[in-house]
Amino acid sequence: MRKYIVKRLLWSILILFFVSFLIYLLMRSLPSSYVETVARERAASNPQVSYKQWLERLNELYGLNVNPLQGFFIWLSQAIRGHFGDSWYYGVPVTQKFGSVIWYSFALGAAALIFQVALAIPLGIQSARKQYSALDYATTVFALIGISLPGFFFITILKMVFAVNLGWFDLNGIVGRMHDSYSPFRQFLDICQHMVLPTLNLVIIGTGSLLRYTRTNMLEVLNSDYIRTARAEGLSERRVINHHAFRNTLIPLVTIIGGTLPGLFSGALITETLFKIPGIGYTSYEAMLAGDIPFTMFYLTFMAILTLLGTLISDVLYAVVDPRVRVS
């Protein structure tokens, strides 16, 4: 097992190298770079200094006067020492910015995940048990709606209903206008209140796939011989489902949920952007739009690490919960 993990880790490092190289190349090849945009804006808003003069000056300041290959290795040599540089767009060290925004994303992702699991698993089991029942059809339809319709659509609906018509929530943001005058506990509640609509949106769009997955697995298990045997032994239906069927359904579910855990740090780009939640998704979106190479490199490399970690965790968990995998 250890050998397997070490081998996987080494592969991951190699993949990471090429991924970060590709990202850097792409960032450098963007049709309009950060410095070009800034130079263009500055030259347009005040034509006393020409675009080319600005460009020359900024390229030098931002170290873009080397070719992409050199640039990448300069970045890499710094990055492996933990120096990710200052964000061009935000003007602060990349890691500082990351540290100040990541927990919003984590809280949002964790809350959404808890609700998703709490909704998807019981509903999935029920719809498998009562296949082709009204409940099954209803959950399938709602799950498919959640999967198919884009997040921004639900966000617009949620804002329209809960913020504009009912007036229960602010349209966006993470705190209300009186936040400063609240006690610390109420400030916390204020933040929770502002997290309701974003969480609800993530739950709506994320529950469907997990629900369908649970249902499919449950159906498969329910048709197994050992379930028939359990029933034949005269066990109560409740015991059959909870002790024999569900535990076996849990195996693929654990791997899937385990694999999504690192994703809690990746942020929800659209939801965060539309609700103006200062999480990593929104922050990186703004940085990418601006062509901020240091921040984007850090974030995308971080995402790559998370993805690699996610698959690794999935595989390891699979081996942990399923002895057959361990043996092979």
């Binding site: 100040s100 919003y104 209300g176 009186m178 936040h179 005058s181 609240y182 610390p184 109420r186 209140q193």
Partner: peptide, 22 residues
Amino acid sequence: TACSSGGTATTTAGGTDTTTAA
């Protein structure tokens, strides 16, 4: 959570330093 902020308003002077949510 939607309703929670409707609790008794504990008012302190505006500008109180907040705990950093992060």
